[in-house]
Design a protein around this nucleic acid. Structure first.
Length: 578
RNA sequence: GCGCCCAUAGCUCAGCUGGAUAGAGCAUCGGACUUCUAAUCCGACGGUCGGGGGUUCGAAUCCCUCUGGGCGCGCCA
């Protein structure tokens, strides 16, 4: 336990128990501008006990045992208890963190099985900027929860079933698997989809074959399934490429697409009807969860089975919930999906609860992802109105990172291959970090210049901070692992840096609980800022004496590992040099 | 009409689930490289937190209401 906030909370709580018999009261420890932290509990407690806040504060302090942690405790204002940590304690905790493989980040004491559904592209189509954000944010959430000690199941709920596949299969059969056009599935699936669409719209014979193919597909005709599998396999090659380049942890094993649930849909419909939850309305089997109304004020249905007998994605989502609860025993489901689908998920969750498939002990959360906007403030698209190709977007980011790289002098020369790797890491990291650093539900304006800037809360700034630290170790002729301290805090910048380092675990856990990676981003940016102040004020290799040098090297090593681990949890690479 | 998200500095965004004097980056202005990477740093300027009520010791934060935006709302996913 190195997080000062938790340590102080426990101590103040003990004091509350001893003084007032209120060991369960929240001590309300917050960062303070007048000290390191302040306990605000005296004010609400005074209200509850009908006494003066300052008297309460005085009594808390009288019972407070923090002599080993704090160097100063004082009461100020109406009853705030200001707590200033002792440099010795901070140094000791930092030293412990340095020696711990997990950087003193404790595993949760309440581990859950959490399934994170993210990315989930429709594999018939090209991924675009919208998929980018759900993919990146979802991957970060999965990594963070895993590190926090939860059992994480990644779930790529791809769209791999339904009406479009009739025409896609027919086109694939027409052009042949080895053809140039079929290769589009591996490089530009959207182009293949659009070609199929064109045939479908212009060629009645093709359209007819496509419809027949859909029927065969849904009837699990063996030959058709074989073609469909081939089509899906080709599309996976494209997914591999994109995920590989992005450094996303999704694998084929994580793909559990809509097709997986297809044979459960009939059961879902039957059971809902048998339970009396679903009713026939206008020829379709519907559930009307209470509290949802449509445009005209009428109850809004979740359509379970269309009037033509087909199923749509609500049914598939219900089957998914039931499967995850019954077969996978998940405690928590996290849907990293665009905010446009908020209403859909509310209704599906409501139906699942009505049907008894989603028990109270299992949480289902829609981690809403805001849209990415273009410079005009509208959904990011090209001039022609098409969605922007992901690969082209990444290429441009890398190209711009390369231009910035070439503009500035470097302390050591780079060979071509190293330059290529660095620029790739910076360009991709910039795009990913931009997606992660704004609150996930917020829309944000996509701006290359801002995200590739080396100032402010950006990926490159954080990467640069790690590169500068590594540079110190190279120049000093030792590895970060060799810097073991002891850590002694003299300069104010050293103290501030060390104190900030201790907050890493809290930032990680908070990020996992809220599924909000931007909190971790904010922590890392503040950490990098604290390091930069230290860097400007405290010479490391030219420290005044050996003890100071050893301590500062240890702080550098600890900062490097913390930034590196934090960025790794976000899925952002950290090049050795820049 | 209903639901979700949003409105904070000229611009782009934070604000840690109610704490003391609301913060960053960009832009503007002024400084710092014979010094571990200046792709950096330090200052200055800049906000009646959309309006109005309420809850209480205390509100950008919670509740209500109004205004103004974005998105979604029966057989697409």
């Amino acid at each position: 336990m190195s997080d000062p906030q938790h340590v102080l909370a426990a101590r103040v709580q003990a004091a509350l128990g001893a003084a007032f018999g209120e060991p369960d009261a929240d001590p309300v420890i917050r960062p303070s501008q007048f000290a390191d932290f302040q306990a605000n509990v005296a004010l609400p407690l005074a209200k509850k006990l009908g006494r003066k806040p300052r008297d309460i504060a005085t009594e808390i302090v009288a019972h407070l045992d923090v002599s080993d942690v704090c160097e100063k405790v004082e009461i100020s204002g109406p009853g705030f208890v200001n707590l200033t940590l002792g440099p010795g304690w901070i140094a000791g905790q930092a030293q412990e963190m340095l020696g711990d493989a997990r950087l003193s980040v404790e595993k949760t004491d309440a581990p859950q099985t959490a399934i994170v559904e993210y990315s989930s592209p429709n594999i018939a189509k090209e991924m675009h900027v919208g998929h980018l954000r759900t993919t990146i944010v979802g991957d970060a959430i999965a990594r963070v929860l895993e590190f926090a000690g939860h059992h994480v199941i990644r779930d790529n709920h791809v769209g791999d079933w339904g009406t479009p596949y009739g025409m896609l299969i027919e086109l694939l059969l027409d052009v042949g698997e080895g053809s140039e056009q079929a290769k589009l599935l591996e490089t530009d699936p959207n182009a293949f989809y659009q070609a199929a669409r064109e045939h479908f719209d212009s060629d009645p014979e093709f359209a007819q074959r496509s419809r027949e193919r859909v029927v065969k597909l849904q009837a699990h005709d063996a030959d058709t399934i074989r073609h469909w599998e081939r089509l899906v396999d080709l599309s996976k090659i494209y997914l591999h490429k994109v995920y590989g380049r992005l450094g996303v942890t999704l694998t084929d094993d994580d793909i559990r697409g809509e097709s997986f649930y297809d044979d459960m849909l009939g059961d879902i419909a039957d059971e809902l009807q048998a339970k009396g939850v679903a009713v026939i309305s206008e020829g379709a089997l519907c559930v009307f969860p209470p509290g949802f109304t449509g445009r005209d004020g009428d109850p809004l249905p979740v359509i379970i089975r269309k009037s033509d007998g087909g199923y749509n994605y609500s049914t598939s989502d219900l089957a998914t919930i039931r499967y995850r609860v019954d077969k996978m025993n998940v405690d928590r489901m996290i849907y990293v999906v665009g905010s446009q689908q908020a209403l859909h998920f509310q209704m599906v969750f409501a139906v699942a609860r009505m049907a008894g498939w989603l028990p109270d002990g299992v949480s289902a959360e829609h981690a809403q992802i805001g849209s990415v906007l273009g410079p005009d403030g509208k959904i990011f698209r090209t001039r022609s109105g098409k969605s922007i190709k992901l690969t082209e977007l990444l290429d441009e980011a890398v190209e711009r990172a390369g231009a910035a790289f070439d503009e500035v002098p470097h302390d050591e020369p780079f060979d071509g291959e190293t330059r290529r790797q660095v620029v790739e890491a910076v360009g991709i990291g910039a795009v990913k970090y931009a997606d992660l650093s704004t609150a996930r539900g917020s829309e944000y304006v996509f701006d290359f210049d801002r995200m590739i800037s080396f100032r402010g809360n950006t990926g490159p700034y954080l990467q640069y901070a790690t590169a500068r630290i590594r540079s110190i170790f190279r120049k000093g002729g030792l590895s970060p692992e060799e810097a073991t301290g002891p850590i002694v805090l003299g300069h104010e910048a050293e103290r501030a840096l060390a104190l900030h380092l201790l907050g890493f675990g809290a930032a990680v856990h908070q990020t996992g609980e809220t599924t909000e990676p931007h909190r971790l981003c904010a922590y890392l940016f503040d950490l990098a800022s604290a390091y930069t102040t230290f860097y400007e004020n405290c010479p490391v290799l030219k420290a005044p004496d050996e003890a100071t040098k050893a301590s500062r090297l240890a702080l550098c090593a600890l900062t490097l590992r913390t930034l590196g681990k934090g960025l790794a949890l976000l899925g952002v690479a950290t090049p050795e040099r820049m």
